[in-house]
């Protein structure tokens, strides 16, 4: 049995029936860390809300722990933990008060499931009497995670837990998720950051309510069909413009300090590249074949 299963899930909004989620199907196995990767507006939040019984699907159906999200919503609500996209704690209550409150609402106590949250809570402990509204982005997310975990849910839904959080806190957050997964909790997480995809067991790339691809991150990147190279020259702006004119090149875009070049079929040799750039008054500084990243794959799907 799947922990989460969605079949042809569909959601539209408003009179004009703007499609937010368009025929989406996917399954998450028990104990899996599954990522929905896509930009804002891709429909991630709508999917989360349907799975957490907060929205009724307009089409298709979905189950969580084998329970139907429409008819068995009461049972589902007892068994899942949910962390919505926006900060969802009481800013005028302290860290400890928030935690105690949510523990009681879920019919448990902080002590009862302390084991589960200990790793995260120790970082919050020094601030336990501080009002939640005065915490930094990373700390707020940790507290929200604690609150979502407090009743030892079987499935954890985390909607963009790392958005707006700095890279260091993001890394720490993903380490926490790994540890939770090791304790057998199924986790569905969404993120707009492509580099976080590799932390998941399996991912679904989504854009405009549709799934572009669904697989393990390794399989998705391995399936990248064209030769891809990283290039660096003395002038990035000029390099991109020059390469976009090259007839063997199908796409070229910046990627950190490098430009990524995707060839239609046959990659240029280093000598050919060097000569081509020289013709364009550019000096080649680095050139190497690389493995595609999730971001490369996503860009390819968008084009």
């Amino acid at each position: 049995m799947w922990a989460i299963s969605a079949i042809n899930l569909k959601k539209t909004y408003g009179k004009e029936a703007t499609v937010a989620v368009d025929d989406i199907s996917f399954e998450v196995a028990k104990g899996e860390l599954f990522g929905l990767i896509g930009p804002d507006g891709a429909g991630k939040t709508s999917i989360f809300r349907m799975l957490t019984t907060l929205l009724l699907p307009d089409g298709g159906n979905a189950t969580v722990l084998g329970l139907d999200v429409v008819t068995d919503y009461k049972t589902i609500r007892k068994k899942v933990g949910y962390m919505p996209g926006k900060f969802s704690l009481y800013p005028d209550l302290t860290v400890l008060e928030n935690l105690n409150f949510f523990a009681t609402v879920f019919g448990t106590t902080v002590d009862e499931n302390y084991d589960l949250i200990r790793d995260i809570y120790v970082q919050l402990e020094p601030f336990k009497d501080r009002r939640a509204g005065k915490l930094s982005g990373g700390m707020k997310q940790k507290l929200a995670l604690c609150c979502a975990l407090i009743h030892k849910p079987d499935v954890l839904f985390l909607d963009e837990p790392t958005t707006g959080v700095d890279p260091v806190s993001r890394k720490e957050f993903w380490q926490m998720l790994k540890r939770l997964k090791d304790q057998g909790i199924t986790i569905l997480v969404s993120t707009p950051y492509m580099d976080e995809a590799s932390m998941c067991d399996r991912i679904a790339l989504i854009q405009e309510g549709k799934i572009l691809s669904i697989n393990t991150p390794q399989a998705i990147t391995a399936a990248f069909p064209s030769p891809i190279y990283a290039v660096k020259a003395n002038n990035m702006f000029g390099l991109i413009q020059a390469l976009q004119q090259q007839k063997e090149v199908s796409a070229c875009y910046t990627f950190g300090e490098f430009a990524h070049v995707i060839y239609k079929e046959f990659p240029l040799s280093e000598i050919d590249m060097k000569n081509y750039l020289n013709e364009n008054n550019l000096e080649l500084q680095f050139y190497s074949s690389i493995e595609a990243t999730i971001e490369d794959c996503f860009i390819r799907f968008l084009k």
Binding site: R49, T52, T53, L54, K74, R77, K78, V80, Y82, M83, P84, G85, K86, F87, S88, L89, Y90, P91, F102, V105, F106, G107, C147, A148
Partner: peptide
């Protein structure tokens, strides 16, 4: 508005 209603709805309460 703060989103806490979402969390409360997804609770056994």
């Amino acid at each position: 508005e703060t989103g806490t209603m979402e969390v409360l709805l997804v609770s056994p309460f």
